[in-house]
């Protein structure tokens, strides 16, 4: 077993374990920390698949920015009343389980449909670099890229208006 494969399994098991930790911890901070560990494991998985840029972005954006905000809010609100949340929204849980099952099914179909795609092609290695992702984003996918930027801007403006409502 090569080092790469060993690391793949290491990160994979870590990712699954921390994902389970995220949804089973009652303490919100513990759940958030588990999620951060999960993001790191995902970044490790991307690295074993030669996608350096994606791995770093995973840490920079999710673990470094979004989760910092999540942890910030958890601490600011000092969430402790997690017992009250237990066993509510049963319909939501059923729906969630159904969607998860459909997703698993899709994954299974995908993996069985194209056995040749299971292995990393040599061309895939060059796909993970900053250059190729930048090229793709600013040429082929320029319009979706700009549209998403606009959407994020709209969300930002909306958030600011909601926050400032009381002032005006």
């Amino acid at each position: 077993m090569s080092l790469q494969v060993a690391l793949f399994f290491l990160f994979g098991i870590g990712a699954i374990a921390s994902a389970i930790g995220t949804i089973t911890r009652r303490n919100p901070v513990a759940a958030a920390v588990n999620l951060i560990v999960h993001f790191f494991m995902l970044a490790g998985l991307y690295l074993t698949l030669q996608a350096q840029f994606l791995a770093i972005l995973q840490i920079l954006v999710y673990a470094g920015a979004i989760m910092v905000l999540v942890v910030f809010v958890i601490m600011l609100l000092n969430l402790g009343n997690e017992e009250a949340l237990r066993e509510q929204f049963t319909l939501r849980k059923v729906l969630g389980a159904a969607i998860a099952a459909i997703f698993m099914l899709q994954l299974g179909v995908l993996f069985n449909a194209s056995p040749s795609q299971r292995y990393l092609s040599p061309a895939a290695a060059s796909l993970g670099t900053a250059e190729s992702i930048g090229q793709a984003l600013f040429t082929t996918y320029l319009f979706p890229f700009e549209a998403i930027s606009l959407l994020l801007l709209a969300a930002l403006v909306g958030a600011i208006i909601l926050a400032k409502r009381k002032v005006e």
């Binding site: 350096q52 840490i59 910092v68 900053a130």
Partner: peptide
């Protein structure tokens, strides 16, 4: 390939040490 981004990413992770210590 992403050396500088690695620095930026990890320096943004450093905040967890301080935040968790505080909490």
């Amino acid at each position: 390939n992403v050396g500088l981004l690695f620095y930026l990413a990890l320096s943004s992770i450093g905040v967890y040490g301080i935040v968790l210590a505080g909490w």
